[in-house]
């Protein structure tokens, strides 16, 4: 149940927020293509090309992803460090997405690598409605370091190495614990600057042998 009573969400937008997409239709189509590619090719870096206005604290990729994915029907939860008024107002204004206080009710979650809650806080969906599993946009420092973490599964030939994304072992363990939850699970985008890397729920996380 993602539906909300909209009442509590409404904040008057007295100051003009930062701009969004310059050309909403074609920019969000490009954004959607890039987001699809990222999940179709787990572990590969994809660039979100569409330029968009954004609040200061937000990188280009998660900003474009939010403008592409969020709408009136997608409750969004802003994680620690990104829950400021500038982002909230900007997001509400451009997408109409309701902001929720309860992270488990969010369809889209915006997070920062250095302030990551337990993954238990988010909806995995149910076997009847796996589409209600949350999409996580995690803003990370970079996507380039090499680790022993690998992903296997649909969209991956053999296995692919993943960067740590500046995330703790605890995060990767929690993600690995969700390997068997499929079709329930979380679809994750790691974002740095205008680059992003997708890790769908269907990817099986392990360590390089």
């Amino acid at each position: 149940m993602n539906q909300l009573s909209s009442r509590s969400q409404d904040l008057p937008i007295s100051q003009a927020p930062a701009p969004g997409f310059a050309d909403p239709v074609s920019d969000s189509q490009q954004g959607f293509r890039a987001l699809l590619d990222a999940l179709a090719h787990p572990g590969c870096i994809v660039t979100l090309a569409a330029a968009c206005g954004r609040p200061e604290a937000l990188d280009a990729a998660p900003a474009a992803a939010l403008l592409t994915l969020a709408d009136y029907d997608t409750p969004v939860w802003l994680g620690p460090g990104l829950d400021d008024a500038a982002i909230a107002t900007w997001l509400r204004f451009h997408t109409g997405a309701p902001l929720v206080a309860d992270s488990a009710r969010a369809a889209i979650v915006l997070l920062k690598a250095d302030a990551l809650p337990d993954l238990q806080a988010f909806s995995l969906g149910s076997d009847i409605a796996p589409e209600q599993g949350a999409t996580l946009l995690i803003q990370v420092p970079d996507l380039t370091d090499e680790t022993a973490i690998v992903a296997r599964g649909p969209g991956i030939l053999g296995e692919i190495g993943l960067p740590s994304c500046g995330l703790t072992d605890a995060f990767w363990q929690q993600r690995a614990a969700l390997n068997d939850a499929f079709p329930r699970g979380l679809d994750i985008y790691f974002c740095a600057g205008d680059a992003m890397l997708g890790l769908p729920r269907s990817s099986h996380i392990g360590m390089r042998a």
């Binding site: 509590s8 969400q9 904040l11 802003l78 829950d83 400021d84 008024a85 909230a88 107002t89 206080a101």
Partner: peptide, 8 residues
């Protein structure tokens, strides 16, 4: 709505 409710 704690993060954004800035009531004056």
């Amino acid at each position: 709505m704690s993060p954004i409710a800035q009531t004056e």
